[in-house]
């Protein structure tokens, strides 16, 4: 029984082999697959991305085709076809891998370029900031110097003013009022009665006044104001006070006070500071006031 089956099997096998050798009109499925796969790969990106492996696949397909043409649907034909399918797929995969690598490199390169750009712009920014800081520093130093200059200028001015008022205090009253520093000189030490020529002794006193004023803030303006008592007419006194103020002003100019800094004005019998009924009061009202207008209120004398 067993041998009978063997015979039947072997005959059937021989028949099958013979049938295959004669060649059917249908190519084996493996070969069909190989043709389809290659056609697909060949029309896609693979000829560009992996031409070498695709060429190997083509050679493999040619082997399969040749085997089929010569021997028909043999195991060899099928094996070669199978290899052609796999080689084709391999070419496609390798091609895609290369493409992916290329894109990755593009991204990486772009990233590096960005990074470089960022570093460059950051360092440029840093450079600008440094320059700004340096400039600011220079400005601060300059400002500091200016502040120092200003401070010492103030200190000088205060010192000069203090000295000036100390000098003046010896023979005149010096006081501070809303007009500025006011130096009041008694009329009797400057002029003879009803005259406006300076007495020789008055000139000595005025020399001290001039020296003190020269030590004053050189930018301040001065007004010499003349006043009389109430004896005599208004216009007479006005005239007298004007001349006396002018005389003092002119003398101070000859002692070195710049002419454009100092003016004279007479006020006559107005603005009395004492009672005109008593001789002492009238004597106090006869006076010349030198008003030093401070350029900066904070620099005014005490």
């Amino acid at each position: 029984m067993k041998t009978t089956r063997s015979i039947v099997l072997s005959i059937a096998a021989t028949g099958l082999v013979g049938f295959a050798a004669c060649g059917t009109t249908f190519p084996p499925q493996d070969l069909v697959n190989a043709r389809t796969a290659f056609a697909r790969a060949n029309s896609g990106p693979t000829p560009k991305t992996d031409p070498a492996d695709l060429h190997s696949a083509k050679e493999q397909l040619d082997l399969a085709e040749a085997s089929y043409a010569k021997d028909g649907d043999t195991q060899y034909t099928r094996d070669q076809s199978y290899l052609a399918v796999r080689k084709t797929e391999l070419a496609e995969v390798v091609g895609r891998t290369r493409q992916t690598d290329k894109e990755k490199n593009g991204v990486v390169n772009a990233m590096h370029a960005d990074e470089k750009q960022a570093v460059a712009s950051t360092s440029a920014e840093l450079g600008r900031t440094r320059t700004q800081l340096a400039n600011q520093n220079v400005a601060y130093v300059a400002q500091g110097t200016a502040l120092k200059d200003e401070k010492s200028r103030r200190q000088d001015a205060e010192k000069r003013a203090a000295q000036a008022s100390a000098d003046l205090a010896k023979f005149a009253t010096v006081k501070q009022d809303p007009r500025g520093m006011v130096i009041t000189l008694s009329g009797s030490i400057l002029f003879e009665s009803a005259k406006w020529d300076l007495l020789p002794s008055a000139q000595l006193k005025l020399n001290d006044v001039a020296n003190a004023l020269i030590k004053e803030d050189p930018l301040s303006k001065m007004v010499v104001e003349g006043y009389t008592d109430s004896q005599g007419g208004v216009s007479y006194n006005q005239d007298l006070s004007q001349h006396r103020a002018q005389a003092v002003r002119d003398y101070l100019v000859t002692r070195g006070i710049a002419g454009d800094r100092i003016t004279a004005q007479g006020f006559g019998l107005t603005h009395s500071i004492a009672d005109n009924k008593s001789p002492e009061g009238r004597a106090n009202n006869r006076r010349v006031e030198i008003v030093v207008q401070a350029t900066d209120p904070s620099l005014s004398l005490r």
């Binding site: 290899l83 390798v94 990755k104």
Partner: peptide, 28 residues
């Protein structure tokens, strides 16, 4: 075995493709 080797070689290429994809994603 001829077929098996071709399959294994394809598997190698496919694994490399996966590696390249991951590297690409990492780069992005």
């Amino acid at each position: 075995l001829v077929r098996a080797k071709a399959d294994a070689e394809l598997a190698v290429a496919q694994s490399r493709e996966r590696g390249a994809k991951i590297a690409g994603q990492v780069a992005v």
